[in-house]
Design a protein around this nucleic acid. Structure first.
Lengths: 234, 234
DNA sequence: ATACCGCCTCTTGTATGCAATGTACTATCT
DNA sequence: AGATAGTACATTGCATACAAGAGGCGGTAT
């Protein structure tokens, strides 16, 4: 592992996007097209058409489609084709429920691994979101929110958790964007108290706050998008 | 959906393995080879070798490897090859931690969706595990344990949760097998009380019992496999 | 008129060939 | 001798070609 590389360079372990992984670019492009609605739910995706459209061969398209299927963006019918996933309100509720549980756990673990430096960084992310909120910049706000939560997971040090939450988060974001701004003000206030709890190393409080935070978001979503007569029993 | 097919046949919606998805067969085979240790951690997997070995072309091998990478069985280095994932005790601890949280949630939700029929089915699975335990059949016991937990998730009705837990469970099982039997007796006693709580629709109790159950398994694992000097702080 | 059978087309599934990239080795220079 | 640059090899990444499976459509027989 020891190289003659200057320390200043060795610090950056994250390699920038080499020209290499074309399937990754295809994946990102298609996911973006689905999330933005330019590929509509239920639409039949034909490999050859996508290939021509994106100017690549069918091979990277296939590989991207299979990962998209794993991540819940499309459904693959064995010998017949790929269809853009059709989201349901029930599914969103389930996603948000799972997310809530995972995030609460991440807050608990983060509180147990807090350092002054990490809290400072977390506060930076918090400020960035606050700025986006003030500027009424919805896209940035959604990103800032994701960054904030992701960093808490990183503080927790649980890589498995990071993977899982990332998966859920990507799918949630698809539906979530429209409520980002109206929920924004309240949400960022809650973030502030959360930082305090994590900084104090109060795991129980951090967990409770995060749970309340995400459940409030879920509730907000329900009120906004689920008609009363669809509300599940419980 | 209406066909002239006899009802006795139409009942079986699950199609048997058609000759079709070769990549799936490759995936299963490789996962099995990794789990069983016939492919060793850190080993470099070469597509062409695997292809020849399994008697297929590189294409299905590639696709299988990519799914294996998503599921944490192998690591893909962008232009150099696939390596069998090297598990660490820390990773196992993280997996078990996440699993504990998700399973607890599944128990809570299951309690809220319990029906007499479902509880009866759950009890059947419980009995099957008990039988395997009595017969000292380790492989069946591991399967029965997985089935039991999976069915609880199914009762919860949360498909997202089912997906996530399945992912985690597959990876856990890789490390978990050796402790299945020694932990078995105790674990199945705990399962019994769990059935009671779920059957009573007592969500809080079910959640607590499941959390205690999985955390005890985690603790058991730690005592067995993590040397004292490796025990993480906290 | 209706139900069934067979064909025909479309799309995916698999195989092979070629180009690009990363690693390891070796020879050379300091 | 150590470090470095150039080179050669192994392996993946991508593209194209071929084969097989699934549905849809029309013809035909009842």
């Amino acid at each position: 592992m020891s190289t003659s590389m200057p320390e200043s360079l060795a610090a950056g372990t994250r390699r920038v996007a080499r020209p290499a992984p074309l399937r990754q670019a295809v994946y990102d492009t298609l996911a973006e097209m689905i999330a933005s609605g330019s590929l509509k739910p239920g639409q039949h995706l034909v490999e050859s058409e996508l290939a021509e459209h994106l100017g690549v061969s069918r091979q990277p398209i296939r590989e991207a489609l299979q990962r998209l299927a794993v991540d819940g963006w499309v459904e693959l019918r064995p010998a017949y084709g790929a269809y853009v996933h059709v989201p349901t309100t029930e599914e969103v509720a389930q996603l948000l429920g799972v997310r809530s549980v995972l995030e609460a756990y991440s807050a608990r673990e983060a509180a147990q691994h807090a350092t002054a430096e990490r809290i400072a960084r977390l506060r930076q992310l918090y400020d960035a979101g606050l700025a986006a909120l003030a500027a009424d910049d919805e896209a940035t706000l959604v990103t800032a929110n994701a960054d904030f939560h992701r960093y808490i997971v990183q503080i927790s040090g649980n890589r498995v958790l990071l993977e899982l939450i990332s998966q859920v988060e990507r799918r949630v974001r698809w539906y979530y964007t429209p409520i980002a701004r109206p929920r924004g003000t309240e949400a960022w206030n809650e973030h502030e108290t959360l930082i305090g709890a994590i900084g104090d190393g109060d795991a129980d409080l951090a967990e409770r706050l995060m749970r309340a935070h995400t459940e409030r978001t879920t509730e907000f979503y329900r009120r906004e998008f689920v008609p009363a007569h669809q509300a599940p029993a419980g």
